[in-house]
Design a binder for these strands. Structure first.
Lengths: 226, 226
DNA sequence: ACCTGTGAAATCGTTCACAGCA
DNA sequence: TGCTGTGAACGATTTCACAGGT
């Protein structure tokens, strides 16, 4: 274990490993080697070992990793052993989809507030959460102690919403709008952007005029980075 | 201009540049230098020049880039000068949100089919699109010539849906489910995963016990990779 | 015998710095 | 003079390959 700073690539992979370990645990497996993990989930075993080694020595030489133990370690590393309060801004279809997103049900993330500007929506409920007026963002966010803001508003409204989030002192943002947000060092913005996702696929479809080729002769398939 | 293979990091940035250029064009600007582009949108000017240089010489030394021209070049490079047919699988809130996602209105991407397994939904319409039975995926997808499949179903249904997509010969997939999909070299999967987005933010919030520090003494702010 | 943890090598990506063109 | 395009330097990340523990 070294005390370097950890790359975001590594922590993103930690999320993947966690998901894989949960799947294995669900199947009743108790132990796994980096090689078999890599085979099964199309990962790279050296990379798994290196990623894990940044945080400690979790494996047993000659044996592998204890699945439940490693899973719990990763949960700790990612900070998933506590609970986070989310505010969703935008009570349209997307915002509502996040509010009752089933994968959040059993997770560390709990939607505590939902905002919109539409007077017809304010006061109504989605998934048990009352829609608040965006005007009151700061006071409501303070009251329920929001850790993470989720931007689910149209592109044109996004910069304003982002300013409100900053002013409220919220440090973490999940952004669905196709808009660049300039965060300072104190904040982290993670964008999940349908537009750039589709543009990336468009490029891929454009750059592959040779459908059906066998790739490199004997090359180990280059791992895609999804 | 070199004839190397282009990194996905580069093509993702091309999407960003395109967005920036559209914004500038919307303001009536006609020309921009890599430096001013970088300043305005918190990018790196050397990187902009290098990214663009992979595809040709688009600028004029001493002057900069013609905004409309460069925009149109990037549109060509990304393959956005043609239209793509999308199929959305899952007519829940998320799938419906994508169907009438406003940013798609003026884009190269057109939703042509929507699928679900729920008999109560099949036959109804969302945003002008009739919901088809997922059973008929292959035949419907063939008929309307789907280029890109969008997975908007619960995690447990995802592997099955992915198999159907493969069998239908669709090469590009946008996946919202928190599930690892193993694509062969012929396919590209792009995952927009709320769960790993949140886990990444969780890690960030966990690793910053020193709120309010002034970061590195005189360090050039490390560019975040959102 | 097997598998982890890790230096060292290889690869990939970014930034610098400047030659050369407008 | 101003700004692009690009080798070269630098830095980050991945992969190799093996020492060492079980």
């Amino acid at each position: 274990m070294k005390s370097e700073k950890i790359s975001q690539l590594t922590t993103n992979r930690l999320s993947i490993y966690l998901r894989c370990l949960k799947e294995l645990a669900g199947e009743g497996q108790t132990s796994v080697s980096s090689d078999s993990l890599a085979d099964r989930f199309h990962l790279n075993s050296a990379q798994i070992r290196k990623d894990l080694a940044y945080f400690g020595e979790f494996g047993i030489r000659g044996v592998g990793y204890d699945i439940a133990l490693l899973r719990d370690h990763i949960i700790k590393i990612l900070g998933l052993d506590r609970s986070y309060n989310l505010a969703i801004i935008g009570a349209g279809r997307l915002g509502s989809a996040v509010v009752d997103y089933e994968a959040l049900r059993l997770s560390s993330f709990h939607v505590k507030a939902l905002f919109d500007v539409d007077p017809k929506k304010i006061g109504k409920k989605v998934g048990g959460i009352v829609i608040s007026d965006l005007k009151n963002f700061q006071s409501v966010a303070k009251k329920v102690n929001i850790d993470i803001a989720v931007i689910a508003v149209p592109a044109h409204a996004t910069p304003d919403v982002f300013e409100k989030i900053k002013k409220a002192g919220i440090k973490a943002v999940l952004n669905f709008a196709p808009v660049r947000l300039n965060a300072d060092d104190e904040m982290r913005v993670r964008s999940l952007d349908v537009t750039s996702g589709l543009e990336n696929l468009s490029y891929f479809l454009t750059e592959r005029p040779q459908t059906g080729e066998r790739s490199k002769p004997a090359g180990k398939a280059r791992r895609s980075k999804e």
